[in-house]
Design a protein around this nucleic acid. Structure first.
Length: 871
RNA sequence: GGAGAAUUAGCUCAGCUGGUUCAGAGCAUCUGCCUUACAAGCAGAGGGUCACUGGUUCGAACCCAGUAUUCUCCACCA
């Protein structure tokens, strides 16, 4: 036999992926079938495949392949996200390496470089997804900055503006001094940081007294507008209405009073710096304080600081502290831990900064998106995310949507010479608009800022089908709303919520029905896998090592929805072994010669059993899929294949060495095998396709591929056979166990006698003889003396060994079993004799207890007789 | 500081509205096997005071309260 002993994934993978592509199996066009749509969460163009993508896209591929096989019109839309900040940062870094400073470039030239970069590297991650076997419709591949998608974004901005959701205003924003752009709250990650708390003395004007404030940011004292105390703080009553002098620069500022100040914290005195702190800003507004912004966009001190101009904020902090010490204005310095915000994209410490930005009003927009989830129109899976989603949506704040970047959709607002502005799609429309408002319309210029990336991602499920610009188009009406969204919980608010908001605004419908939130892939130590930690295996290498199917199985086996997954390569090993198991089952069947003899009863019964077992498992699998328990669905499949099919069914029908198999049985086996392959296909697409095309399973047309083969449908389940067969299995196991404990070689056939009282073993006896290696199977009505006995159900079985049995050991074993049953019966009796139990418990439960009792009693009777016959 | 979740075999997890089994699976472990598909395998076995303490109930891994530990999300305390 020339078939390899192990499955070789490499060949099969390349071969079948290009075969599927060539024959257009991933392609989707609207027709009469039921649609099944998934839009891929677009990875960043800057990205390379990591374990998270791997998990995510494996899940999507399993869902889409299964739907395709179920005869649905499966459409999986791939694409990438322009990720403005991350990409712009990357391009800036690349230019820097070439000695080009971004500042020296015009917007147009910079964008030219950026697009070049995108063309060169933007497709890498999608190519990697092909390796994973992703069966997306590549002809639909979209990029969030494609012309049509960008236009959708601009149209949406204008629509939202006209509807009054978008406004422009000066607010405190999260400023990223490295990316030099504003960020939304969601793009800021807070981390606890070890800091110093500086206690600084401010002298009271015309007095020898001073007041001490505590701050972590001494570099901002030059921007102080006031000192604030709590009005009910008796320590400072005498200072009310006085003014203090800011150290080093000697500017005079008032002492104000506000309940906001916590008397307990620090010194109970607060310096108010409206330009550099969110709360201070609010206080400043309330008390009408001057706003002094002493920072440049890059985080260095500007002229307003008066001293240390041009120094970076962190260097300035240390220097100021030193200067203050020199003039003896520092009372003390304490170690202190506090939360500091960092930019999600650049990891720079966020600076609260006052600036003019574009905003999207969220309260009204959020309501329907909240309702979708609360009403269950959109399911979050697992359900536990619903509460945090609710909490977030009920407390949304306005969304800062402008970014001071070039890479992205430029905001369609226009300014005239007087800095008046209008919102319009084109320059000429803007001119018209200015004129209609009776304003100057010459020399107008477009807003420099671009929109937040998530503004375009929010449109993704619609814009990929051109549903924003052209809502009546056939594709959009057919494929939208989509069915399932598979994504990471981290972007539930960033993205998922905003898709619902935008979907609702345009269509009045949620963009999807189910949101499957995957867990985070962690290493064995529970740390998130990341490039920076270096604890993540390279998925491409994993696939090379274990085969794509093996890795897919490995990922899925351990990832219940929403639970983090502690990844370990041993899972991939298990996946690879499973692939190999199937491969070898194929090798077995492939090697059989056939004979034109009819199947015997044992084989027919085995087939009936497996048929029933298959159908029962199918129901189980369906149920798992319906609840998005993919790992359980896979495990059920795994056991069906490994245990039921290979370990039992194939062993039952396997012909003796070099003997042929009956044609009839051969056909049945092949039929089962094919159905197993279809069941396995969504998880292991390559192996299943490879085997599907083997001549063993007959001639195939070009398009007769498993990827579009019919997914198994349910069928008859013979509960009686399933039940009887469990006893057969038990008998076989018991005999094997006896062999094992008595150190008898499996080659030595043993005699077995069964006292059958309930089951008709006619159709099973051959199977028992074969799998338990029985020399002679007899049916008896009475005890067999001197034999080892065991119970299978109520059937007592005897194995007579050549050597004399160890009577004491047997007695002990039986006594132990009787003792167990006694205890068991005792507890059942206790229940049944409890009046309250009999009164309160449901009838079927009482019946059950009675059955248990009867069962245990008859077993005990048999055992007692055995015990008696021993002596 | 607020909210949510988790805690079941060495590991990763099931256990659906409390009532078939003094709790199941996969992996790992142990024992015996290179048995003519597969040692990436076969056969068999062992392994758990269901975090802790109380409570509700005829009955609790499951419900309630508290404690401990862990995780996640949210929040402006200088």
């Amino acid at each position: 036999m020339s078939i390899a002993k192990t499955y070789n994934p490499k060949e099969a993978e390349d071969k079948w992926y290009s075969y599927w592509m060539e024959n257009g199996f991933f392609r989707s066009t609207p027709d009469e079938r039921e649609p099944y749509t998934i839009v891929m969460p677009p990875p960043n163009v800057t990205g390379v495949l990591h374990m998270g993508h791997m998990l995510n896209n494996t899940i999507q591929d399993v869902l889409i392949r299964r739907a395709r096989m179920q005869g649905k019109n499966a459409c999986w839309v791939p694409g990438t996200d322009h990720a403005s900040i991350a990409t712009e940062a990357k391009v800036v870094a690349m230019l820097k390496e070439q000695g080009i400073d971004k500042k020296s470039l015009s917007r147009e030239d910079f964008l030219k470089h950026a697009w070049e970069w995108k063309e060169k590297y933007g497709g890498i991650i999608l190519k990697q997804l092909e390796k994973l076997g992703a069966s997306c419709d590549w002809e639909r591949t979209k990029f969030t900055m494609d012309a049509d998608l960008s236009e959708s974004v601009i149209d949406t901005f204008i629509k939202f503006y006209k509807e009054g959701y978008i406004y422009r205003g000066v607010r405190m924003v999260n400023w990223d001094p490295q990316g030099k752009t504003a960020l939304s709250d969601e793009e800021v990650i807070r981390r606890e940081v070890n800091q110093k708390l500086y206690y600084i003395r401010y002298n009271i004007k015309d007095s020898n007294e001073f007041i001490i404030i505590a701050t972590t940011r001494p570099e901002t004292i030059m921007a102080d507008a006031a000192i604030c105390i709590n009005p009910s703080d008796e320590r400072y009553t005498h200072l009310k209405g006085k003014t203090v002098i800011i150290p080093l620069i000697n500017r005079e500022i008032p002492i104000i009073e506000d309940e906001y100040v916590d008397i307990e914290f620090g010194t109970g005195c607060l310096k108010v710096t409206p330009a550099h702190d969110l709360n201070d800003y609010a206080l400043g507004q309330k008390h009408n304080l001057e706003i002094i912004d002493l920072l440049n966009d890059d985080g260095t001190l500007n002229a307003h600081a008066q001293i240390l101009v041009g120094e970076d904020r962190f260097i300035a902090r240390k220097k100021i502290a030193k200067l203050l010490e020199e003039v003896d204005q520092i009372e003390k310095i304490e170690d202190y831990k506090s939360q500091v915000g960092f930019s999600e994209r650049t990891d720079a410490a966020i600076e609260p900064k006052l600036s003019m930005q574009w905003w999207c009003k969220m309260d009204k927009l959020a309501q329907p998106a909240l309702d979708y989830v609360v009403s269950g129109e959109v399911n979050l899976i697992p359900d536990k995310f619903t509460s945090s989603y609710k909490h977030w949506m009920e407390n949304v704040k306005d969304w800062c949507i402008s970014r001071q970047l070039w890479w992205g959709q430029r905001i369609p607002a226009w300014y005239n010479e007087k800095n008046e502005w209008v919102v319009a799609k084109t320059e000429s429309e803007a001119i018209t608009e200015f004129e209609s408002q009776g304003k100057v319309s010459s020399n107008i210029r477009q807003e420099e800022d671009v929109l937040d990336t998530w503004f375009s991602s929010g449109l993704w499920p619609m814009s990929v089908f051109d549903g924003v610009r052209n809502p009546e188009n056939e594709e959009f009406n057919y494929y939208y709303p989509t069915n399932d969204l598979v994504t990471a919980p981290e972007i539930l608010f960033f993205w998922v919520a905003r898709m619902m908001i935008m979907g609702h605004e345009y269509t009045g419908k949620a963009p999807f029905k189910n949101v499957y939130l995957t867990g985070i892939v962690r290493d064995k130590l529970g740390r998130k896998m990341s490039k920076s930690l270096g604890n993540s295996p390279d998925p491409i290498e994993l696939m090379a090592q274990y085969g794509t199917d093996g890795v897919r199985v490995g990922m899925l086996l351990s990832s219940p929805a929403g639970n983090d997954l502690m990844f370990d390569v041993s899972y991939c090993e298990q996946g690879r072994n499973f692939a190999n198991k199937i491969w070898n089952a194929f090798r077995l069947v492939k090697g059989w010669e056939t004979a034109n003899t009819p199947a015997n009863e044992a084989q027919k019964t085995a087939a009936k059993w497996f048929e029933s077992k298959f159908n029962a498992t199918l129901i189980e699998i369906e149920d798992h899929f319906n609840h998005y328990r993919l790992s359980d669905a896979l495990m059920s499949t795994y056991k069906l294949v490994w245990d039921d099919f290979c370990a039992w069914y194939l062993e039952l029908v396997k012909p003796a060495y070099q003997a042929p198999i009956e044609m009839e049985t051969f056909e049945v086996v092949k039929g089962f095998f094919k159905r197993i392959l279809t069941l396995v296909h969504p998880f292991m697409p390559f192996l299943s396709e490879e085997l599907w095309h083997d001549e063993l399973f007959g001639e195939r047309d070009v398009k007769d591929c498993i990827i579009v083969a019919e997914y198994p449908k349910g069928g008859n389940i013979d509960q009686k056979i399933i039940k009887e067969f469990t006893f057969v299995q038990q008998i076989i196991s018991e005999v094997r166990n006896i062999r094992n404990t008595k150190q008898i070689s499996p080659k030595i056939a043993l005699p077995l006698a069964i006292n059958a009282t309930e089951i008709d073993f006619t159709n099973y006896q051959e199977s028992i003889i074969k799998l338990a290696n029985i020399e002679q199977l007899t049916f008896v009505q009475e005890k067999v003396a001197g034999a080892v006995s065991f119970l299978a159900g109520k059937e007592e079985c005897y194995v007579a060994l050549e050597e004399n049995i160890d009577v004491d050991a047997e007695r002990e074993r039986i006594t132990k079993e009787i003792d167990y049953l006694k205890g068991f019966l005792f507890s059942v009796d206790k229940k049944l004799s409890n009046e309250r139990f009999v009164q309160n418990a449901k009838p079927e439960i009482i019946q059950n207890e009675q059955n248990k009792k009867a069962d245990a009693e008859s077993k005990m009777k048999i055992l007692a007789e055995s015990l008696a016959s021993l002596s």
